[in-house]
Design a binder for these strands. Structure first.
Lengths: 358, 358
DNA sequence: TCATATGTTGACAACGTTGTCATCATACCG
DNA sequence: CGGTATGATGACAACGTTGTCAACATATGA
């Protein structure tokens, strides 16, 4: 029997490429890493050899030797599957363009050991940096701990303007968008607009409330505390909150839920109370999750370009990793503003109801 | 100025542990990898040193040297965020228990280059194995390509019984669950039950249809082709399909959508047609996504333990990786059966409507 | 012209771990 | 008691890559 003459399964290494291109290992390395000072002719030869052997650099060896790594982590704690997937896809798209790997890390933002957990994660998996989603991105003591441990990161957070706190971020102006949603309701003639808070653990909650408050103020409508209910970003809290508001002697004609899940809860409560939406009650949400499009009536909401936001954050992080800038440097942070999406769940106030107040 | 006397930030290596425990590098390695033939006393000493230095083995060095890797990939192509997140969490939970990392890889199941894409992914990121979600898990030519390239994997797929095709899998009996859903509708008195197909690219679609068909047969109800509409696993196809069915001269009294998104589309179509659910029309879905709980009325559906399914698949994969068994070996495949969840969207048929048929 | 700067390339060590093999001590067998 | 299996441990090389530094060629300046 003949010996096996087929190509060995072992995949090509930098050595094979070097031999084929008749250059040293180091030169191949230079080409692979796009380093300058390689003659054009040499580069061509090496690239040709790389293509022929379909060579792929070994990430393990790379990160072992260079102490750099080509993997970033994404840290989140969010029950909203759609939001998380959108973020992941945004982050992944940049990773693919830049040759980075992604390590996803759902976690418990309330865990007391979170900071240490992240430090170990970064160490163990040799992560080059982290993309921090809310609410982790908003915990200043966590941020400072990471910075003190020289862990690179970019935050995604809710803010009306660049926080300018020296740490990089991509910020989303929830306040502005919440203002737009509230304004939309006011322009439909609503004066008694209920507001259901999101979770206090998230910076977005007070931001969205502020937008609501600002709009009412701007249109000269007094804030009625009876119409404001605290809660979490959940369907159940939306349901409960709506029940409470609808049971008032003088109930609101519109309810603004701090996210779509809350608004879905409001919708369910309205149906349970035999109210017709938007005829008897207008409902608005926030986030533009698939749910908001698919429920009946479809929800008026504010659309966040979650994927784009995550993209920008990741570009920022990887850019800094590649060029070795430090987090403290002064690249401008990027801001996003969600946009109002008007759908069937909001409509003009009924004349008879608008009169109930005075 | 004094030289820096603080502890260097560099994290502990196996060398430090060895020095501290006064053993050789190799012995530490043995302890870390749970190899036998280490004296209990030695092991204790090493473990102590590991704890003191909070040593974490370096994955890059590990996989470089051993040519093994401690990262698995999860390959999916599914627009349903909730489904994907549930799977991810199931896979991740096992990864954390076993010290593996996870590399997520959403992809386009229709891409002609998918097989090669996966091969390169495995090579580049040194993946130890793959968890394949549907519909990739169902493409036999892809499966065989992976096997031929010695890539280890576990499939998650829809089947009424163990396929026994020599490749490992965890299977979900959609047929049985679809039978249960249909039976539930029949027992409520429905005779004219519409069925909206899911996408043909997924094995689950014919399985679910088979369950529907079997139930009708078993209860002696003739299949009416006019009540069966093809489509995809989407809200829009649910909406369109329902419109078609509701426009029939003799419309169904219940509609079974192949998943919750389809059912949501049916619900919207029913609302748009001013039908009251379940009084005028019963609706059932499949999957038990959050949507099904949160819409109004809440959907009757079949609950898949997606997280558990993914867990089992991952345990299977990692188990084989650790013990070096080959995919061809004969460990029994595990099966799951979704369970019927009855909610408000299904109810007894109206006497007046039940009579419309004969 | 020689000295010096600049650009291109390569030899070699090192990253942290595990596989291989050797060594040594102890237990067991006849 | 000698010979051999068995168990515990360590020395050393190797995995594939990149950082450091040196070597050399060529261009530039005095």
């Amino acid at each position: 029997m003949k010996p096996d003459t087929t190509t060995p399964k072992r995949s090509a290494t930098i050595k094979d490429v070097a031999k084929r291109a008749k250059v040293s290992l180091k030169t191949v390395s230079r080409v692979v890493n796009n380093e300058p000072s390689v003659l054009e002719a040499t580069r061509k030869r090496v690239e040709h050899a790389i293509a022929e052997l379909s060579y792929q650099p070994d990430q393990s060896a790379r990160s072992l030797r260079s102490a750099k790594s080509y993997t970033i982590g994404m840290v989140y704690d969010n029950p909203n599957a759609y939001y998380v997937i959108s973020m992941q896809n945004g982050v992944l798209s940049v990773c693919r363009e830049t040759g980075f790997d992604l390590n996803i890390h759902p976690c418990d933002s309330n865990s007391p050991g979170l900071a240490e957990e992240l430090r170990l994660l970064v160490q163990r998996s040799r992560l080059a940096g982290l993309v921090l989603a809310p609410p982790m991105s908003e915990r200043m003591e966590l941020i400072q701990f990471l910075a003190a441990n020289k862990i690179k990161f970019v935050r995604i957070l809710s803010a009306a303007e660049d926080p300018r706190d020296g740490f990089p971020c991509v910020f989303v102006d929830d306040r502005d968008a919440a203002y737009a949603v509230t304004e939309h309701l006011i322009q439909l003639g609503h004066q008694r607009i209920g507001f259901l808070w999101g979770g206090k653990a998230h910076r977005s909650s007070p931001e969205r409330f502020k937008g609501y408050e600002d709009a009412l103020k701007h249109y000269g409508i007094a804030i009625d505390k009876a119409l404001i209910v605290e809660g979490d970003y959940s369907f159940d809290d939306g349901f409960r909150g709506a029940r409470k508001l609808l049971a008032l002697k003088n109930p609101p004609t519109a309810i603004f839920g701090s996210n779509d899940e809350i608004a879905a809860g409001v919708l369910a409560a309205a149906k349970a109370a035999n109210l017709s939406v938007p005829y008897d009650l207008s409902i608005a949400g926030f986030e533009d999750s698939p749910f908001s499009r698919q429920c009946w009536p479809a929800l008026t909401t504010a659309a966040q370009a979650t994927g784009d936001i995550a993209r920008r954050a990741t570009e920022r992080l990887i850019g800094e990793l590649k060029h070795g800038r430090h987090a403290e440097h002064s690249i401008a942070n990027v801001g996003f503003s969600p946009t109002l999406v008007i759908r069937g769940s909001t409509g003009p106030v009924r004349p008879s109801m608008a009169q109930t107040k005075p």
